[in-house]
């Protein structure tokens, strides 16, 4: 690990101020992804601002029947919250599908959203990767790309976003709240947090430098059933090959794109009377493959109708 300096933030305002003033500073909360990447020298911040003890770990009822989840709430506490288990169960199911008990006890809501891809070429510093070293190329394009994206990829990057939690939040239409270095707070839909890779896969979100996620807000749950399903190479503690969150008529896919992929075309088809199989076929019209990840198209074709049926109480 390269040397860095460390401070514990006393307030959110102080944290964003420090992040704006100190070159190459990063926030750290749980640290489970950042420290892993720092050991590999994929991440090398000069300064860490520890936001883990900021008073942003509450889960509060909202006047409209929604729920505000503080950004420092651990994944374990969110998954265990009785309100979430009864009204937004897809979120609990998604969180407990990710990581291990130890990791979920440390990982935070904000950090989970900002975790980085598990693409093997991003992790291997001997290989080209436009995300890790802009301009160096993409080793996955013609390489071991079994885990790569089938939606929204570019010739510069075919990496996927690894979060399960974010897929459920995308299906639930959650809002992200942030604090900017200027002191201004803002809120925006979670689908506007992450970017597609385009020509700049190293720029992964629409956050401005030094902007801190302070909370995620769930709107009241949509009408209809909810379910999260994840397919992976082993039964537990593995990244997904494909996953799907269904919440009423909303469908989001995981492990298939550079961001949680809201299947808007499939949703529209379902709303106009298509069967689940017909609906996902419409979505897959825009899918593309790079060789070894081609199986994901068929996987999604089978997974999504099964999940929709399960959410609607039909056997699957």
């Amino acid at each position: 690990m390269r040397p860095f300096t460390y401070e514990r933030a006393e307030s959110a305002q102080g944290a964003v101020k420090a992040a704006a003033e100190i070159a190459n500073a990063k926030f750290i909360a749980g640290g489970t992804n950042l420290l892993d990447l720092m050991k590999l020298e994929i991440e090398h911040p000069a300064h860490l601002i520890d936001v883990g003890r900021l008073p942003l770990a509450q889960v509060e009822d909202m006047p409209d029947g929604g729920l505000r989840i503080g950004a420092m709430t651990t994944n374990s506490h969110v998954a265990a919250d009785a309100r979430i288990r009864s009204r937004w169960p897809v979120l609990t199911q998604a969180i407990v599908a990710g990581g291990s008990g130890q990791l979920r006890n440390k990982a935070t809501t904000g950090g989970n959203l900002l975790q980085r891809t598990r693409c093997a070429y991003f992790y291997d510093t001997a290989k080209p990767c436009n995300k890790r070293r802009p301009g160096s190329g993409c080793g996955a394009l013609e390489g071991l790309n079994r885990n790569s994206a089938i939606f929204g990829a570019s010739h510069a990057c075919i990496a996927t976003h690894p979060s399960d939690m974010a897929v459920a939040l995308a299906a639930l239409g959650a809002t992200v709240e942030t604090l900017s270095p200027s002191g201004a707070a803002r809120a925006f839909p979670i689908l506007e947090l992450h970017r597609l890779p385009g020509e700049t896969p190293d720029v992964e979100t629409h956050l401005i430098p030094g902007e801190l996620i302070t909370a995620v807000v769930l709107p009241p749950p949509p009408e209809g059933g909810q379910v999260y399903r994840k397919v992976r190479d082993r039964a537990s503690y593995a990244a997904g090959l494909a996953s799907v969150a269904v919440a009423g008529g909303n469908i989001a896919l995981g492990a298939v794109a550079h961001k949680p992929w809201r299947a808007a075309d499939a949703e529209a088809a379902l709303a106009s009377g298509a069967s689940p199989a017909e609906a996902i076929a419409v979505e897959l019209n825009q899918a593309s493959e790079n060789g070894r990840n081609g199986f994901k198209i068929n996987l999604v074709r089978r997974l999504v109708p099964a999940a929709i049926d399960q959410a609607n109480g039909r056997s699957a």
């Binding site: 640290g31 489970t32 990791l103 440390k106």
Partner: peptide
């Protein structure tokens, strides 16, 4: 419980 290797 946490992984003590992934914490400073």
């Amino acid at each position: 419980r946490i992984n003590s290797c992934l914490s400073l």
